[in-house]
Design a protein around this nucleic acid. Sequence first.
DNA 1: AGCAGGTAATTTTTT
DNA 2: ATTACCTGCT
Length: 778
Amino acid sequence: MTRETAAGAPVSIAARARAAVAPPPAAYLEGLNPEQRRAVEATDGPVLVLAGAGTGKTRVLTTRIAHLIATGRARPFDILAVTFTNKAAREMKERIGALIGPAGEGMPWLGTFHAIGTKILRRHAELVGLRSDFTILGTDDQLRLLKQVIAAADIDEKRWPARGLAHAIDGWKNRGLAPEQVPAGEAAAFGFGKGGPLYAAYQDRLKSLNAVDFGDLLLLCLRLWRENPDLLGSYQDRFRYILVDEYQDTNVAQYLWLRLLAQGHRNVACVGDDDQSIYGWRGAEVDNILRFEHDFPGAVVVRLERNYRSTGHILAAASTLIAHNEGRLGKTLRTEAVAGEPVTVTGAWDSEEEARLLSEAIEGLQAKGHPLAEIAVLVRISAQMREVEDRFVQLGLPYRVVGGPRFYERAEVRDALAYLRVTANPADDLAFERIFNTPKRGLGDATLQALHGLSRRAGVPLLQSARMLVETEELKPRARSTLRALGQSFARWAKLLEDQPHTEVAQTILEESGYTEMWQKERTADAAGRLENLKELVRSMEEFPDLGGFLEHIALVMDANDAEGGDRVSLMTLHAAKGLEFDTVFLPGWEHGLFPNQRALDESGRAGLEEERRLAHVGLTRARKRAKISFAVNRRIHGMWSSTVPSRFIDELPEASVAVIEAPAGYAQGPSRFDRQAPPFGSSYATPGWQRAQAATAGQQDSYGRGAPAAARRGPRQIDGTLVAKSTGAAAAFEAGARIFHTKFGPGLVTAVDGNKLTVDFDKAGRKMVLDSFVQPA
DNA sequence: AGCAGGTAATTTTTT
DNA sequence: ATTACCTGCT
């Protein structure tokens, strides 16, 4: 048995002796290939496992944990194992359970970054000025709070939308920046230089509400540890072994979080694939993986390159494609599987024909006995789904859309939760505000203003000021009685909670508040589904002992119960497909502008192109036996038909593994039909978007070349760029009198500038208000 | 307060 | 084409 013991990472003598005396039978090690086995057995010291698609990444992770436990190196609670999604965490739990039985079930520190952050934060909440029962705010609560903060600062919310501020704050939090750490220039980019104070004010409001947002779950841990070295030491000590899944997706905050913890025993194993990094746009830092060896000197690097999923042709296509990327560590996927069917490329006249061909191909497979559950259609953007769905519905082909809005983010679920939150915690102002006029009960802005005023003066929560306000003459009689009834209802429901099961109380609340009725009356197509969701919500409460327990965990753990069984085709975005695999994968919409996506190119230049290419690589490697790429020569973009050019990615596939399929339809005009329909590939690079992408790339290379400060060079660069372009840059770039070019309206003259909104006299379209992000200097 | 009609925007999404 | 948001009217 090999044992790498890095200097400075002592393994307890007892553990070592025990492992030496009684080598485990290690049935779980059987069937691992040599690299996988190395990744499992290199237990001590830093390890980076570069696991290409389909190389048994999860197996290595779970076996590694089993190995640590079975050899006595660690007990389940000594191991910290972090994932990004609850789904991944659940899967890992299950697989560990299967490997080593119930011993693995007690892994208290296996979970998402945020779940573990929450757990730690609840234990020491008072050290960062919170109570341990703090609320975790979702995106919509965050937005509502930000609106208040912006209004309180006397800033026009129309000029500086809360969304923009939310985006900026998320970006800062992703980079581990507390308000006082945000670079002055960036903080000034929002709201006439008030970005910094607004961020600080937002944090103050959160604190006074005893609430945190998702970013805080990590950020506050960092603060906790920095301000309390003893505490940090105890956690460093506690986590003898650390494992990280999907390391390429970590952002700076998560990286700092990990690095602090890993400095204890230094037994940190990160598993990831730089070629599958597709979340750069939300703060993920490929650099984290690229620089692992630098951060953890002496790290063992294991490459898993044996692919057990796909056939030779599919793998060749994916590998050749991804080899066009420059910023990668480099892996060569190999397989012993047969070459199989070549990857097909099909051109269609338009997107409708593309959907038709695709559906027919699926029906063909179905006729030959292929299960639909083994077929997936992966699209670049959600908007592509509609056309495919339409076709499926027409044909009666069963399908399921994977992803989409999460269960707990649906409006009806948030509303219902808001009722429950106010009942459980009458001081939850954000929840109260959400439902105080839902269903419509004739309470509006005027009433809300009065409530807010009183709340502020008296220093009490909204619900309490409502009860006070109805005793005065301030409100009109109608609002007064409505509000009184609402206050009484919440008091009654809270009382019910004392002696009735919480699920029943929830049911009562939804009925008595008129919320259920509101949806029953609504005769839209999805009303029934919403009622179903409400039922599901109540049902899911049963697993929790009480309402408090339910609410505490809901924001973090609740998932869509997409247990819809049955044999169905899966339809999803490429992003949603990561980690999944199917026998047959359809990849429609490989057209320049759509995929690679124009916006990604515009915003991030070559880095954007490379991320798009990784996305293509992820798409291809989802397929076990068949990958079917297609594109349309004409597509409706924003309701307008325009002709399109096949994606450059198609040209980057290896000839030997690709078969070009002629559409059997009546449009067939010869072997190179789509070559003639579409302009030659070269010409697409003359588009304004491509030129902008080129320019952006050149700019980036310059900043690399000149050796800009590290902070400016890495991923934040992208965030910087966006902020500057959208705000400071805008004010400077577009002044009244400037000639500009708008994406939709063409050339025009700027007559007024209002934050990120411009008033423009267009040559053709007349005077319009437009957002600066749709405008280029002419 | 609440609806109707007009106008502009439209990538990817977890926690 | 569809949606989300804003404005102006009842």
